[in-house]
Write a protein that binds this DNA or RNA. Structure first.
Lengths: 191, 191
DNA sequence: CAGCTGATGTCAGCAACTGTCATCGGGTAC
DNA sequence: GTACCCGATGACAGTTGCTGACATCAGCTG
């Protein structure tokens, strides 16, 4: 791809695509930022203007996901319990992810192969949890319940998402989330 | 501390102590590995022989904690439910941490001030969760329940631990864990 | 006392990331 | 239409985390 020109549009999109391709082709560790930038028709310095580090380029969508979760909790009907509001938010996220399933699988395979990327994913999930808890408090839920419902919801999501990406069949993420919620309820009931 | 000599004992202990001191004094980011090594009477290269990276030096005790959790789950009485086994494990961990409370507080303040360290802590907690789930499966718990009980337990621990380190009074970590378990049960019940 | 072994020191080097300044393209004012 | 302005990019030097390769040293073993 010679000479993309300095002002080609969608620099971020090109960087994200180039990075995912290279991480799949040669692995995360054996890919240098200079290579990503080159494939995107940009320089290394410009990469770091768009993304704080080499990991972040795989998580461009996480802020949108966070907004979706927070918005769904905020707009949950009044009588909903904290866990119901969280469940609704996860269902909304599941619907979005269900679309780009193949992209999600590829991306997850890259993350599963590298510890640094797993760390970044975990802190993104922690950020989602914190945002969910905030949204719940906004609804008048007490501090402790808000944190617990948010953490429990994210735990459910983690497990459901893993099963979804690892499955051979074609069950919906939404189903896995439902099953995991039921499992959590069962496991916490008899304590 | 001039000329510690090449063969002073307890190199790891000296490195951990020096690192924590410097992270407190000047912050994690403004501390170089060379400085840590110097204060410990060693070289930078030797630091990296003991710890994989600059973060890991703060997490030397995590493998012992993991063994404690796994061992407690394994030795839990036969009729214990998954969550009861997990709760017993967390209580055992709490007893250990309750001892070095001041050290835990200092350490946590450093971690709270830096995102890289938070990432590392999160992956350590994820590792604890995976180990707990394994120990539960060893007891015959089904896959899904094992993962869910482990994740829920770690979520409870995270929240209890945070409250414990932030409190002004002197309530025991064990109490916070009990309260958080009760809160989780309440929040998951009415879904 | 000679040799072996494991821990440490020394040195060179790569890649991630940052600060600084120059440069360019596209829009705006007049 | 020309001059100007501004945000995005390039160019380049520098720091630091981290690694590989080889030398060196203390203590043990025979």
């Amino acid at each position: 791809m010679p000479d993309m020109g300095r002002w080609e549009p969608n620099a971020r999109g090109r960087l994200e695509r180039a990075a995912l391709e290279l991480y799949i082709e040669r692995g995360y560790e054996r890919t240098s930022v200079a290579e990503i930038a080159e494939r995107a028709g940009l320089t290394e310095r410009t990469f770091f203007r768009h993304y704080a580090d080499k990991r972040e380029v795989l998580f461009g969508g996480s802020s949108a996901l966070q907004e979706l979760l927070v918005g769904t909790v905020a707009r949950a009907p009044e009588p909903a319990t904290p866990m119901e509001a969280v469940a609704a938010a996860l269902e909304a996220a599941a619907a979005v992810l269900q679309e780009r399933q193949e992209h999600a699988r590829r991306r997850q395979a890259v993350i599963a192969a590298n510890a640094e990327l797993q760390e970044r994913e975990l802190i993104k999930l922690a950020s989602l949890s914190a945002a969910l808890a905030d949204a719940l408090r906004q609804r008048g839920v007490d501090d402790s319940s808000a944190s617990l419902a948010a953490e429990a919801g994210i735990a459910v999501f983690k497990i459901a998402f893993r099963r979804w990406t690892e499955q051979a069949e074609q069950k919906d993420l939404s189903q896995f989330i439902g099953e995991s919620f039921a499992g959590l309820k069962a496991v916490t009931a008899g304590t």
